[in-house]
Design a protein around this nucleic acid. Structure first.
Length: 456
DNA sequence: GCATGATCATGC
DNA sequence: GCATGATCATGC
């Protein structure tokens, strides 16, 4: 769907979507696209906190404040930016994540449920950027973003941590607080220097100013969870199942297929009209838009299909009911194909072990397309193990021999074949012998797919 | 009518 | 600019 250049300050998921547009971008990139005021260019500051302030002011266009309320009060969302470091094992937190300052005098009168901590930090919008020394804030690269709500068990531990910190203050020991006292939520020192000291209610001894902070380990845990979410595009997905109770009486397959029932026998134009959507006639994602329209998924991805790796394929039968076109898949890299040791771990086997969802149309007399069938499908074991394996072996063998134009043809195998798949003939890929050859991919034979679809 | 090569439209 | 799903074009 469209990329929003605006967001709704009252809607947490809208704010999150807006934040996710930042991933793999810097503010400078957005300035060049005209989405952020160029005045920021002058703001080439380096240093602590600068990124967070710039993001609030110039991207989200909210006033950075020092309030007890969260940054987006109506949505109860608190924006936090924090640096990442890259190591050989991936992305990790560079430091603890500092939250609000602890007011020793007031907190002793608070209860967890209504605490100033929870009021501000119950729903965090985390924006992680890659730390680079000396780089201006507008050039820092965002790598990860997402809303973070504490999982129930975590929240209990955080509650206990909070209580332990408050208990120490109540005992007049604010000056003895140590980060080692607690598990996820620590009380770290905070202040311009070691002399930033504050009064505490039950002792005359001045205590170092402290703030609540998630320990680095806990931040790393959050990072792993968000990366996983990002991998499955969860934030950019919409659900088919809006209400879990629907699955009490019906299987997931039945629910999905049921959604299409009212549209079977209708042409794509009629379906679009019934759904109230307008689609460009020549759009190659026409079918995709129809599918998501019927499933009432208004985002670019279908959440359940993403998580389960269900692949949607639209299939258009000819007037007579036959299938002309084979189905293409992502191109393979010659150099990587020959590195695959055994069939069981091959990319091709993994691809065809997935579950598919076929949306089948049939052409009519005037070129119109009628929705005739939807079905889940996965490749029968024998077809995969026997036929596809043989295509894979033959392809690998020929590539090793350098015969890039003598790969399995459609007539060589009942299930799959190899054919070019690039933007044009000049779209090439490196070969093991250091040359290049047209990008190619595995295809499922049209005739085979037609058999698998069965009666329509 | 099919096999095969080539290219288009879109999203990211 | 590239990957991908979808489709076109040509020749036998």
């Amino acid at each position: 769907m469209k990329q929003n250049t605006q967001y709704d300050k009252k809607d947490a998921s809208s704010i999150e979507r807006f934040a996710l547009r930042l991933v793999d971008k810097s503010l400078r990139g957005l300035i060049e696209k005209g989405e952020v005021a160029p005045s920021l260019i002058k703001d080439n500051q380096v240093g602590k906190g600068g990124f967070g302030v710039a993001l609030e002011k110039y991207y989200f266009k909210i006033q950075p404040g020092n309030e007890s309320r969260p940054d987006f009060p109506e949505a109860h969302v608190e924006l936090k930016t924090t640096p990442l470091k890259r190591t050989g094992t991936g992305l990790w937190s560079k430091e603890r994540l500092v939250l609000n300052i602890i007011n020793f005098m007031d907190i002793v009168g608070e209860k967890w449920e209504t605490s100033s901590f929870l009021r501000k930090n119950s729903l965090l919008l985390l924006v992680f950027y890659l730390h680079e020394k000396g780089v201006a804030v507008i050039d820092l690269l965002v790598k990860l973003a997402g809303l973070w709500e504490y999982p129930a068990q975590d929240k209990e531990i955080i509650r206990q941590d909070w209580n332990n910190i408050v208990k120490k203050i109540k005992e007049g020991k604010a000056h003895e607080i140590s980060e080692g006292d607690t598990y996820y939520l620590g009380a770290c020192t905070k202040g311009a220097n070691r002399k930033s000291k504050r009064q505490q209610p039950f002792s005359k001894i001045l205590a170092k100013q402290r703030a609540f902070a998630f320990k680095q380990r806990y931040v790393n845990y959050i990072i792993r969870a968000l990366l996983e979410r990002q991998k499955f595009h969860i934030a950019d997905t919409g659900r088919i199942i809006k209400d879990a109770s629907e699955l009490k009486a019906k299987t997931f397959d039945d629910v999905v297929i049921g959604r299409f029932k009212p549209y079977l026998g209708l042409t794509t134009l009629q379906i679009a009209k019934k759904l109230g959507i307008v689609i460009k006639l020549k759009a190659k994602n026409y079918n995709d838009i129809i599918t998501r329209g019927i499933l009432k998924v208004d985002r670019s991805k279908i959440e359940e299909f993403e998580k389960a790796e269900v692949i949607v394929k639209s299939i258009v039968l000819e007037k007579g009911g036959g299938l002309k076109e084979s189905i293409s898949f992502p191109y393979f890299k010659y150099k990587e194909l020959i590195k695959e040791k055994d069939w069981d771990n091959s990319g091709l086997k993994q691809m065809f072990e997935k579950r598919f969802f076929f949306v089948v149309y049939r052409k009519g007399n005037k070129g119109e397309r009628t929705l005739v069938k939807v079905m889940f499908w996965n490749m029968p074991y024998n077809d995969l193990d026997r036929h596809v394996q043989s295509v894979w072996k033959k392809t690998k063998k020929r590539v090793i021999q350098g015969k890039y134009n003598e790969l399995p043809k459609i007539s060589d195998n009942p299930v799959a074949h190899v054919r070019p798949h690039g933007r044009n003939a000049k779209d090439v890929c490196e070969t093991p012998d250091g040359k290049t050859a047209t990008k190619k991919c595995f295809w499922l034979n049209a005739k085979y797919i037609r058999e698998q679809i069965g009666r329509i």
